[in-house]
């Protein structure tokens, strides 16, 4: 892969990455095509639409929702062409609002949501959301009433979490494919809410 920016010499970082890739491919240890494939998977094949399909189905089908909450690994494949592997689904209710973080590094349910955004990996988010989640959520424009527990899930080990947000009001009878359009990525991390039908129509 070439460096497209010719106005500046490549950084030490870029030179070292290229040297490493060259070494590994010359020794036959990596197939450069597999690297291209992984980048394409990361940027084009996985993403939050996968999670949104799961959420919309859970909103529309109580039996699916029950099975999803019990054992997400077994049911995500019914709907999307990628396994959830080690994912656990956390249901938001009027009593509990769930939000996910990885304070120790950057663990994220990337199989179902795609690559994590920069803010998720930022020191501010990682350090603060466990200690002052309400303030951090407010920075995302989300206010959770104090009568609702804010439960922060620190993804520290093998499991990954996906938040099942509450179904917005005024969506009774909506088709699953329309419900999907209401599901934002941040609503599945816990730093946002789904769109209302009005907001989705306007966007």
């Amino acid at each position: 892969m070439s460096d497209q920016n010719h106005t500046e010499p490549p950084s030490d970082f870029a030179l070292r990455v290229r040297a490493l890739e060259t070494l590994l491919s010359e020794r036959g240890l990596v197939d450069p095509a597999a690297l291209d494939e992984l980048i394409d998977i990361a940027e084009a094949r996985i993403g939050p639409r996968t999670g949104a399909k799961i959420v919309a189905r859970a909103w529309a089908d109580p039996d699916y929702k029950r099975r999803l909450l019990e054992n997400a690994q077994e049911v995500t494949e019914e709907l999307v062409d990628i396994t959830g592997a080690n994912v656990i689904v956390l249901e938001n209710t009027p009593d509990v609002h769930n939000v996910i973080v990885c304070t120790l590094c950057s663990c994220y349910p990337f199989r179902l949501l795609g690559m994590s955004p920069g803010w998720y990996k930022s020191y501010a988010y990682r350090s603060r959301v466990v200690r002052e989640p309400r303030k951090v959520l407010a920075e995302f424009g989300l206010t959770v009433p104090t009568s609702t527990e804010v439960r922060v899930w620190d993804s520290n080990a093998e499991l990954r979490y996906l938040v099942l947000p509450m179904r917005p009001e005024g969506t009774e009878g909506m088709a699953e494919t329309d419900l999907e359009k209401l599901v934002t990525r941040n609503s599945m991390i816990g730093t946002g809410r789904p769109l209302t039908p009005g907001e989705a129509g306007a966007s």
């Binding site: 070439s2 490549p10 990455v17 490493l20 690297l35 992984l38 940027e43 955004p117």
Partner: peptide, 16 residues
């Protein structure tokens, strides 16, 4: 801050 990768070298090291 929505940035996942800022340049190709970052993409390559992720993939490697």
């Amino acid at each position: 801050n929505e940035t996942t990768f800022a340049n190709d070298a970052q993409r390559r090291i992720f993939a490697i």
